[in-house]
């Protein structure tokens, strides 16, 4: 795992967020966000419920629109320009808490839909790629089944494979394990750890602090729409700076 390029040495920002602000109506949900992510970096974002973690990563692939500041992904600034948005969405994959698989398509079709319609790949090629990623998430034998026939953990692994089939440069995860039964969490985390080993740039919203310790290069703590603190995992967990971080950690590490 440590054969990865050291992010600091290859400081090539793939996401740049500057002075970004977002409101939901009157409600100021993200405040003056500054964040740079370099290629290969693995970031874990945590913080109390409602602090804006989901909204932040959803701004990165424009599922949410920001009102002020700048977001540049893979060299392209996110504006209302549809071409820009399409480019960014091709390069950024996303995994949701509730999987959001397409229930009317088989596992294989879930994985080939976007490569065929967005990347304009031949079907055979798209299917070969899909099988490769289904093998990587360890469920190639489920390819012909429908999502409703799979367990939660299997569904989430399909969702990861579906995103990977677009061969994105960045992967976003929004609480990928929090809708899963405890015995299924590990199988999904294992897949994510293997993905990290391949050098994928990852932004993960999660409360799995074990995952943060072993996989992340950087842990970001958010509260009230702001980035309160960010640090390497050891520092973050052993030596938190702000009181809010300490309080949060004491609550979450109790169990």
């Amino acid at each position: 795992m440590n054969t990865l390029p050291n992010p600091e040495s290859r400081a090539q920002p793939v996401i740049q967020i500057q002075k970004m602000n977002k409101w939901f109506g009157q409600f100021h949900v993200l405040k003056e966000i500054d964040l740079e992510v370099v290629t290969g970096e693995r970031i874990v974002i945590c913080g109390p419920s409602g602090s804006g973690k989901s909204t932040l990563i959803r701004c990165i692939n424009r599922l949410e629109e920001h009102q002020e500041g700048q977001i540049v992904v893979d060299g392209v600034e996110l504006t209302n320009d549809l071409k820009h948005i399409e480019h960014v969405r091709r390069e950024v994959g996303m995994v949701f808490q509730h999987f959001n698989l397409f229930p009317h398509l088989t596992v294989l079709e879930n994985c080939t839909l976007a490569p065929i319609w967005v990347r304009k790949q031949p079907k055979a090629e798209a299917e070969a790629t899909a099988m490769k990623y289904l093998e990587r998430v360890k469920i190639p034998e489920q390819a012909e089944k429908y999502p409703g026939q799979l367990s939660g953990g299997q569904q989430q692994r399909v969702a990861i494979a579906r995103s990977l089939c677009m061969q994105p440069r960045i992967m976003l995860f929004d609480e990928p394990t929090s809708a899963l039964d405890p015995e299924m969490i590990k199988e999904v985390l294992d897949v994510m750890i293997e993905l990290a080993d391949t050098g994928m740039t990852m932004l993960v919203v999660t409360h799995e602090m074990g995952f943060a310790r072993t996989v992340a290069n950087r842990v970001i703590f958010m509260d009230d729409g702001q980035i309160i603190e960010q640090n390497k995992p050891e520092e973050f967990f052993n030596n938190p700076q702000s009181d809010r971080t300490k309080l949060f950690l004491s609550q979450i590490l109790q169990h």
Partner: peptide
């Protein structure tokens, strides 16, 4: 149809028509 279906499609880069 759950809004998550639309979001997942968008995140994959599918156009609205598709």
């Amino acid at each position: 149809i759950n809004y998550g279906q639309t979001e997942a499609s968008r995140a994959l880069g599918l156009r609205n028509g598709t």
